[in-house]
Simulated assay, not measured.
Amino acid sequence: MNINIICIGKIKDKYINEGIAEFSKRMTSFANFNIIELKEYNKEDSMNISIDKESQDILKQLSKSNSYNILLDLNGKELSSEDMSEYIEDLKNKGTSSINFIIGGSNGVNKELKNSVDMKLKFSHFTFPHQLMRLILLEQIYRWFAISNNIKYHK
């Protein structure tokens, strides 16, 4: 299976990069894993223009593959770790070979992107910094695979 995290911007904090490196290494046991970092525009443009530019860049990435696309979204579906593990296993059993997890920019994504994905997933009612969310997502992806492979990581 191929797992991609498509996200906006680069990680600046060393401790987050170290966590991402650790879970990226662990993921190699389960899947081909890749992080695709796209340009952050909000420093140069108005908010609506930056949202559209970032969303279009993400849509270009999605058009390059025949993947199942999951957008992290505040209005998305909430699942437990066990349920999400089962959901991914079900996708694999149905022949899905690639999953893209999408983290939009700090200002969000446009309606076109929201309407283009296969699933919207909500992690929490809390607000997380985008850089930290990338690490949280990666840890959860590892957890989902650990659950489905009966590895004693998830308690």
Results as ranks from 00 to 15, higher is better:
Ser85Gln: 04
Ile49Glu: 14
Ile58Val: 13
Leu113Lys: 14
Asp13Phe: 11
Ile141Asp: 01
Lys64Thr: 13
Met27Cys: 14
Trp144Gln: 06
Ile102Asn: 12
Leu137Asn: 00
Ile51Lys: 07
Ser65Phe: 10
Lys25Phe: 05
Met47Gln: 12
Phe123Gln: 12
Ser46Tyr: 15
Glu44Asp: 10
Asp118Arg: 09
Glu82His: 13
Leu135Asn: 01
Met47Phe: 11
Ile99Phe: 08
Phe33Lys: 06
Tyr87Asp: 02
Phe23Leu: 09
Glu112Gly: 15
Ser24Asp: 09
Gly104Asp: 14
Ser124Arg: 00
Glu40Asp: 13
Arg134Ser: 06
Ser63Ile: 08
Ile16Arg: 09
Ile20Met: 00
Lys43Trp: 05
Phe101Asn: 15
Gly104Thr: 07
Leu79Gln: 05
Glu82Leu: 06
Asn48Thr: 05
Phe128His: 06
Ser106Ala: 13
Ile35Leu: 08
Arg143Val: 01
His125Glu: 14
Asp57Ile: 00
Asn93Gln: 10
Gln131His: 04
Tyr41His: 11
Leu38Thr: 13
Ile49Tyr: 10
Asp52Asn: 08
Lys43Val: 12
Val117Ser: 05
Ser50Trp: 14
Leu138Val: 04
Phe33His: 01
Asn42Lys: 04
Ser29Asp: 15
Glu40Cys: 08
Asp45Arg: 13
Asp52Gln: 09
Leu113His: 04
Lys92Cys: 06
Ser98Met: 15
His125Trp: 07
Ile103Gln: 06
Asn48Phe: 13
Val109Glu: 08
Glu37Tyr: 02
Glu37Thr: 08
Gly104Lys: 05
Ser24His: 06
Leu138Ile: 11
Leu138Pro: 04
Leu138Asp: 07
Trp144Cys: 02
